[in-house]
Design a protein around this nucleic acid. Structure first.
Lengths: 372, 372
DNA sequence: TTGAAAGCGCTAACAC
DNA sequence: GTGTTAGCGCTTTCAA
């Protein structure tokens, strides 16, 4: 019951401000289809037909019901709606195998966690894992998932061409697809959940900039495979753009591509020949490899920034060899992804084209709160 | 339908791993009270009485039903449960007035946002605002809320003694209370949602430490009022502890108490007499006042760390006068607070004693993602 | 084209 | 103590 001078009603709630007391109160009446049926002088069945646009309703009845629906701003009771639903929904996930690359472990956790939430709504989740080093594996596992005929799909599109093909396969069957981790070219999937990678490069740049007043800074791409090519490029772009915009000659930015195996020898060599190097930015979650090398070869005084809260990375964060990590929020990405798909299936919610997660800055004092 | 060699069933789901494909599938059967009644050879009513411990059940029936409930690990259908619920729940919030201190604006947003979510569950939220500078106002508004006889209460216990009294008033009426923003002495309220303030002081310390190799560092408490006394002390404690643990003489830590009005004159004076000052840690959300002073008095080369994403703070973050802000996540605090209370009312979920939110580190490149 | 009716799983009032 | 029954709001079937 709202009674006040300034009544700013919105939706079914109204916010009323009286002196320093803010009330939020429900609207006086919650209408049900029964009410609507009575108001329109028709039966509940007819109202339902109108609501779901199932046809078989006379012009007259349709107009009358629609008018009332508008008038009262009818909102169906989502709880009752789902009670009846015996439908079993099925969400399929195409995920890089966490046993091959540990980064994906937290993604799996996010998926499991979200699937718990939607259990009572008859949402089943299937994870199909593929080898993140192999496009063949991706294609094969995509076929596996496709055959399961899921109602919605969440996938990490590591391989551009193959992902594009897979998504179009699902779209042909009218199966909504949400991507996470990295975007394939926009507009192909129904939505994306993840981070702005260019911006995350800028965050890294700013961090180094706040620690280093002048000197050489090196971007290191660790190429174990082709997987992260796009990823790494975008981060590099953001990083270099930041320093370009500074428009100063205090910093020299270099990019280095090193294979993981060669790191132990190549990096010390490089650093010895570039003694003015004050900062390193590692574009993948493998910064522990660099930290290891720095430690072994006894380089200190070099600020190191990497990605992701892997156990190994955190160890080096604690021992101050890695200064900052950027958290890509893998768990949250998949949790949100599953949530959005589930809510799409259950409530017919629209899938947002792009959901950008925060870019968390992590140091040795706050990491524990991000891995709960 | 699960069929596999290693079946690790948990809850009503089972996780089955076969080669690189991970399946999550529902258990074959979802039991309803009807099933249980049939299995136990009693009626649904009896099962219901057992479930809700309403008594009036024979020893025999009770044992039989309980045994079955355990056997099948029965989980009631939350959807159906709420369908019946005509009860209107009422959550009351005691919030410092955002018009007096802008910090609380985001708290209000979190409250409104969460209350939207629980609208369909008949959860109504009332916000009663008090003047954060006045214990009298707090006590008065507490009485206002108390008279509304809410089913649960969320409050920011700015004043130790008064908050304690208020909480005990609610407890006497068996109204659950959740606190946010800062903790009153443990065990008084049913739960707390917020940050570990000591740890957040450590985060600030670590940030300054990664930027400053040696020099003087000053902690500044801006005392506009007594409100934040506890807050500030805890942050200071974490901050100084961090540097003590370093066990080095490279840094000199000083604490300063300044009134907001005197800042413009007192701070430059102080800094001139302490020219080796390299870093400032502001323990409240008013770091923009310090930034303003530094800018006007033309001090550069001093790293500044403060709290909270107020517009003014962000302006100085952008112009590089503030280096880092620590986000106390005000919106998330209240959002979670309302959520927990609502779920307690609806599902009888237990209220967790302590929920600690991450301590977000913010710089000029990632702030936008935290204020969405 | 329409309305009546059964039922989703759970709750609670009411007889016995 | 116990079982029966009538809903909660919505969906869906079925007969008219």
């Amino acid at each position: 019951m709202c009674s006040s001078t300034q009544n700013m009603c919105s939706n079914t709630y109204c916010f009323v401000k009286i002196s320093t007391v803010l009330y939020i109160c429900e609207n006086e009446k919650k209408y049900t289809i029964k009410d609507i049926a009575a108001l329109a002088g028709v039966s509940k069945g007819t109202v339902d037909r109108v609501l779901h646009k199932r046809g078989k309703v006379s012009e007259e009845a349709l107009a009358k019901v629609n008018r009332i629906l508008e008038d009262i701003d009818y909102k169906p009771n989502v709880i009752a709606r789902n009670l009846k639903n015996n439908k079993d929904y099925h969400i399929g996930v195409l995920l890089p195998n966490p046993d091959i690359d540990n980064y994906w472990k937290r993604c799996k956790e996010g998926i499991l966690s979200a699937s718990q939430v939607f259990m009572p709504f008859n949402v089943n989740v299937t994870i199909v894992t593929y080898d993140p080093r192999s496009t063949v594996s991706f294609k094969k596992k995509h076929q596996v998932l496709l055959k399961q005929n899921p109602d919605a799909v969440l996938l990490a599109p590591l391989f551009y061409k193959e992902a594009k093909k897979a998504i179009s396969d699902y779209k042909k069957l009218n199966i909504p697809v949400l991507t996470f981790n990295n975007q394939v070219s926009p507009e192909i999937a129904d939505g994306f959940v993840g981070q702005d990678l260019i911006q995350s490069g800028r965050v890294a740049a700013k961090l180094l900039h706040s620690m280093i007043k002048t000197g050489d800074i090196t971007i290191i791409h660790i190429n174990e495979d082709i997987t992260n090519a796009l990823h790494m490029q975008q981060k590099e772009k953001g990083f270099t753009t930041y320093f370009k915009e500074l428009n100063t000659s205090l910093f020299k930015i270099t990019t280095l591509q090193i294979e993981a195996k060669k790191l132990q020898t190549a990096l010390p060599e490089y650093l010895n020949s570039h003694p003015n190097t004050k900062g390193l930015f590692i574009t993948t979650s493998k910064s522990y490899l660099v930290a290891q090398t720095l430690e072994t070869a006894n380089f200190s005084d070099i600020s190191l920034i990497g990605y992701d809260l892997l156990d190994l990375n955190i160890d080096y964060l604690k021992s101050e060899i890695i200064t900052f990590l950027i958290n890509q929020n893998p768990k949250q990405q998949t949790y949100l992804g599953i949530t959005k798909l589930a809510e799409h299936l259950i409530y017919q919610n629209e899938i947002k084209k792009k959901t950008l997660l925060p870019i968390d800055i992590i140091n040795s004092e706050n990491f524990s709160l991000y891995i709960q």
